[in-house]
């Protein structure tokens, strides 16, 4: 693999790893606080899967980079502007409705992506995708079912998820952005074309929204920047909390 392509793959893997980690972290905030015991267990399962994906992806990113950074070095010793996750996943939990909408919009993307990444010419990435795809298929069923329940539940629940959908929709455009580096990866058969992902994502999302009796928001101005390290105010607090111990005790092994 050429150096340029390797760098591009490092950036790609890091973005994917950061997105999984930040979303896993957000979901882990629910542990012990979910609306039902069964749901507490289910959300924690999803959080566990996502942090698991992040570990594989960050480990691989560290290898591609070749500077000796392991999963923890990458997770715990980077500041906001070096994080590459989608803005969508760093948005706060707010209520269960927001959490489910955020999760669903992400999950559909993740299923479409990992299904295609299974065929990646990069064997390691294909291997990670093969493991992750089984889990994200379950995640999208879980978040989709909840979205339908809440959308087609009571007036209150409908209003809450409709509000969340409107609020979070502007963060979905970023998932399908493509820069030059990514274009090279697409050309090399290593990653799928985001345009193709977007069509598949839209179809799946619209089908569930219809069943949930929710209107699909219009594609207006989209918030972007996470992929380049330009984040909302929320990420700094998340990292401050997550990174507290390794930052406070830099020489410690845990």
């Amino acid at each position: 693999m050429s150096t340029d392509l390797k760098d591009a793959l490092f950036g790609y893997t890091l973005r994917l790893g950061d997105t999984s980690l930040v979303l896993g972290h957000r979901l882990s905030e629910w542990c012990g606080h979910a609306p039902e015991l069964e749901e507490d267990i289910a959300l924690t399962n999803v959080a566990l899967d996502l942090v698991g994906h992040a570990r594989m992806l960050l480990t691989y990113a560290g290898e591609l980079e070749g500077k000796g950074r392991d999963e923890d070095r990458l997770a715990y010793r980077r500041d906001v502007f070096d994080y590459r996750n989608h803005l969508l996943v760093e948005q706060p939990n707010r209520d269960f409705g927001h959490t489910i909408v955020r999760q669903f919009l992400h999950d559909v993307w993740a299923v479409e992506l990992y299904e295609r990444l299974c065929a990646s010419r990069d064997e390691t990435l294909a291997g990670i995708a093969a493991k992750a795809v089984k889990e994200v298929r379950y995640h999208v069923r879980h978040s989709g079912d909840w979205l339908i329940r809440l959308g087609d539940g009571t007036d209150v629940s409908h209003a809450r998820v409709a509000d969340a959908l409107g609020r979070l929709w502007p963060y979905t455009g970023e998932m399908f952005e493509r820069d030059e580096a990514e274009q090279a990866l697409v050309a090399a058969g290593i990653v799928p074309d985001p345009a193709e992902l977007k069509a598949a994502w839209t179809a799946r999302v619209e089908a569930v929204l219809e069943e949930a009796t929710l209107d699909r928001p219009a594609d207006g101005w989209m918030q972007k920047g996470g992929r380049r390290g330009e984040h909302s105010e929320h990420l700094g607090y998340l990292l401050a909390e997550m990174q507290f111990l390794p930052r406070a005790y830099p020489d410690a092994n845990w």
């Binding site: 882990s28 012990g32 942090v51 390794p246």
Partner: peptide, 28 residues
């Protein structure tokens, strides 16, 4: 659960999440 978001390594984070989840399962 108070320490899930502050676990110092990803391995510890996963272990603690799984543990607290087990407690929920025991409750069930």
């Amino acid at each position: 659960g108070n320490w899930i978001t502050r676990a110092p390594t990803l391995r510890r984070k996963v272990a603690l999440l799984a543990k607290v989840q087990d407690e929920g399962g025991h409750g069930l």
